[in-house]
């Protein structure tokens, strides 16, 4: 089955990659600047925000899925958008799970050497924007691992995406939900094949990442 790569399998892989890519991208775009901000500034309520993001890191996927489901269902506040059971809403549900992870990890990374960096940047009269870019570039190896964590969480997630995506064949079925379905049907070989592909994708992403980190260290 793996060798033949039937159409449905390719479609499931495509949806999975599309969803994981956008979930990771959006989560990093939202979470990293906030994490840097938390890492480099001190303000009232900062501790509470950090504790909150820490708490949301442990948000059960089904709960996130349920919240997003209620928001986007016909009677929900955002029901008029009519995007329930689409890849878009699956990305939204995943972002709810991944953004706190990205914020928290980015904050931990940038707060370690932020004081020294900020002092240096202030001493050289760098603008706030230049300082923020410096913080990101100086920590890019560590931040790369945040991107990997976000991608890992996204590609392996099943609870939220099955709730809001509905695991619809040829539409919102991703590898994790397909594995669950095929296992329930007793179609273990197909489930296992999907599992192997899932692992291969993760492995490939990690290999690419390790090359990028190696390049950076040289």
């Amino acid at each position: 089955m793996l060798m033949s790569m039937d159409k449905e399998l390719l479609q499931i892989i495509g949806v999975t990659l599309r969803m994981s890519f956008f979930s990771t991208l959006i989560s990093c775009l939202l979470g990293m600047p906030l994490g840097v901000l938390l890492g480099k500034s001190s303000f009232k309520g900062k501790g509470t925000i950090i504790k909150l993001t820490g708490t949301f890191m442990g948000l059960p996927p089904v709960v996130a899925g349920l919240i997003v489901y209620m928001l986007f269902s016909k009677n929900g506040i955002l029901g008029s958008l009519d995007i329930l059971f689409t890849v878009e809403v699956m990305v939204i549900a995943q972002c709810m799970l991944i953004v706190p992870v990205v914020i928290n990890l980015t904050h931990s990374i940038t707060s370690v050497n932020s004081a020294c960096l900020i002092e240096t940047a202030k001493g050289l009269n760098f603008s706030k924007g230049k300082t923020a870019i410096l913080m990101l570039t100086e920590n890019k190896t560590a931040l790369f691992s945040v991107v990997l964590s976000a991608f890992g969480r996204s590609i392996a997630e099943v609870g939220a995406v099955s709730l809001v995506g509905g695991n619809i064949q040829w539409k919102t079925r991703v590898m994790t939900t397909a594995i669950m379905l095929e296992t329930n049907k007793g179609n273990f070989s197909f489930a296992l094949a999907l599992g192997i592909i899932l692992l291969l994708i993760s492995f490939t992403v990690n290999i690419i990442a390790s090359f990028a980190v190696k390049e950076d260290k040289q």
């Binding site: 020294c116 202030k122 050289l124 570039t137 100086e138 890019k140 950076d216």
Partner: peptide, 28 residues
């Protein structure tokens, strides 16, 4: 250098300053 603020008092200047901290981080 204006890197930190004092708790009391004032620093009056309109000079452009460049400050070298004790701990130096080379950029990557």
């Amino acid at each position: 250098a204006g890197v930190i603020k004092s708790d009391e008092g004032t620093v009056e200047t309109n000079s452009r300053m460049y400050y070298l901290p004790q701990q130096n981080i080379p950029f990557r």
